[in-house]
Design a protein around this nucleic acid. Structure first.
Length: 507
RNA sequence: GGUCCGUUCGUCUAGGGGUUAGGACAUCAGAUUUUCAUUCUGGUAACACGGGUUCGAUUCCCGUACGGACUACCA
């Protein structure tokens, strides 16, 4: 396949939704697979929805998940600027071309007039309440007004928009890589606003102009754009760019985990999982939205999970590195139906990736949760090695390792009532005595020591193991006890056993 | 309402005119681990419905139902 030029084009109106991350991912995979170019274009044409920090957030998020941008607002490139607000003059020029050639027109209607038009149409029982071929001649625009009236209004600075003059009766065909041929009749499309009264273009114009100018070969975007894709085809045609029109691929939506509909923040909050890559605090409301990173997910696990929501390689392999995804990705294997977001599956992926990390890599997650200088790197790596089979999230290391740094203050009452008895106390007493004779014993040595004690007292090791565990850790279950005691050190183990014997007696 | 898109186990999905409809997550049972977790083995579980076409349809066609997206001077 020839090198593609693809773009991810978010608008900086808030945190980057996980669905957006998947769109970016599919674009990225295709770019890398074909040795093509990945472009990040900031679509900030809506000044009213601008949110400070959102653009930086998007960039940081993509960086975290490992999607590297070749051309974009931050890295520049041959088609700079990559921020639409900085390309205002460019759009204006093409809007003018459309007007000059009779494919667009000025419209001066106020909001109230538009509202009145829609109500009028509604009252007649019309199925469409649109500014279109059937209604445009009843409105205030350069089609109905005389040339001098229009010139006068323009000169007087009356607010206006530029609308596309959609042909009234024509079948518009478009070919989608995922859905095949899609046909829409032009009567269903309204005379979309191309330039807003503030001088900014709308998405429709800006997107077509930029995709052409930036030589985009494939437009991979969410399914919500499918209904307006025929409009974009029209725009390419009127601008004389039909031969250079990119190929379209409209991705299936990410759906709510239960019930139906597009996945939203509400659903995520309700089900208690994040919906954004990184933590995000809304500058206006101060509301904090949890990120996958802060919730303990690994970026490559998240990417693997996301890649499989709407795409699959056709083999039985489930775990894919980003490079493997790049190698096996094809748009042909993208599905058509929306995919439910199943956080349990994401957790499983995370667990698999955590297990595959080296102990040294994992040590970072433990260390960052601990007070400085409490634990050496080597010790942290050892602890993580012991714990890695039992964790789902990065923060699990710290919570599960807690007993190694803090002696228990409470003891699991269930274990005590079932397993704490004279035999246990006898073994523990003798065991701690035996430990005193050892220096830095390994798990192996500790184990044989314990077995020697139990055999000499003629008590099964299994009978008292739970008691030992509860004495040392406070809990009835946990990681390998012998290894835990090795890490704790014999002195600490002795102290804990003795404390347990005296405190539990009182209960 | 209209337009467009979609529909295989609970979920993500493979498959495709004749298959014991395959895998993964979840779930259940057993084994291992003298705990829990991990791991292993096994089980339950799906072609939305109705018509065609055909010797045969889950697969192709048409409807119906259901679901979704869109229907802004938002993207």
């Amino acid at each position: 396949m020839h090198p593609v030029r693809v773009r991810f084009a978010p608008s900086p109106t808030g945190a980057l939704h996980i669905g957006g991350v998947r769109t970016a991912l599919y674009n990225y995979l295709l770019a890398r697979k074909t040795n093509g170019t990945m472009i990040l274009r900031i679509e900030d044409t809506d000044q009213t929805r601008f949110v400070p920090g959102a653009e930086e957030y998007i960039m940081k998020s993509l960086e975290w998940v490992g999607i590297k941008i070749d051309e974009g607002a931050a890295q520049g490139g041959p088609h700079a600027p990559y921020r639409q607000s900085e390309r205002k003059a460019i759009y204006k020029q093409y809007a003018q071309k459309l007007i000059d050639e009779g494919n667009a027109y000025y419209a001066f209607d106020s909001e109230e007039e538009l509202e009145a038009m829609r109500n009028r149409l509604k009252a007649t029982g019309s199925s469409l309440q649109q500014y279109s071929a059937t209604t445009r001649m009843m409105m205030a625009n350069s089609l109905t007004l005389s040339e001098s009236e229009v010139a006068q209004k323009l000169a007087a600075g009356s607010p206006y928009v530029i609308r596309l003059k959609v042909p009234d009766s024509e079948e518009i065909e478009l070919s989608d890589l995922i859905r095949g041929e899609v046909k829409v009749h032009s009567s269903q499309i309204d005379d979309k606003v191309l330039m807003k009264s503030d001088g900014m273009p709308t998405y429709h114009l800006a997107n077509v102009v930029d995709d052409y100018l930036m030589q985009i070969t494939h437009v991979i975007r969410g399914e919500e754009w499918l209904p307006s894709a025929p409009l974009h085809v029209l725009l390419y045609r009127f601008l004389g760019w039909e031969k250079q029109m990119p190929q379209f691929a409209h991705l299936p939506l990410l759906l709510k985990p239960d019930g139906n509909g597009k996945l939203s923040k509400r659903d995520a909050d309700k089900a208690g999982f994040p919906l954004f890559p990184l933590n995000w605090t809304d500058p206006n409301t101060g509301e904090l939205s949890k990120g996958f990173r802060e919730s303990g997910y690994l970026p490559d696990a998240l990417i693997n999970f996301l890649a499989f929501l709407g795409w699959n390689p056709g083999t039985e392999q489930e775990i894919f590195s980003i490079q493997e995804l790049i190698d096996s990705f094809t748009v042909e294997r993208i599905g058509k139906a929306g995919a439910r977001f199943d956080i349990l599956k994401a957790q499983w992926f995370n667990q698999q990736y955590l297990k595959a990390r080296t102990n040294d890599e994992l040590a970072v997650y433990l260390l960052e949760a601990l007070p400085p200088n409490l634990c050496s790197k080597e010790k942290a790596a050892k602890i993580c090695g012991m714990l890695k089979e039992r964790v789902t999230f990065t923060h699990d290391f710290a919570t599960q390792a807690r007993f190694l740094f803090e002696a228990p203050t409470v003891y699991d009452p269930q274990v005590i009532s079932k397993k704490w008895n004279d035999d246990a106390v006898n073994v523990l007493t003798a065991f701690s005595e035996a430990l005193k004779k050892l220096t830095n014993p390994t798990a192996e040595v500790i184990k044989t020591t314990l077995e020697q004690v139990t055999t000499s007292l003629n008590i099964g090791t299994g009978k008292i193991l739970q008691a030992l565990r509860v004495a040392v850790t406070g809990a009835g279950s946990g990681p390998d006890l012998m290894l835990s005691m090795e890490i704790l050190g014999s002195q600490e183990v002795i102290t804990r056993i003795q404390r347990a014997i005296t405190t539990i007696k009182k209960i």
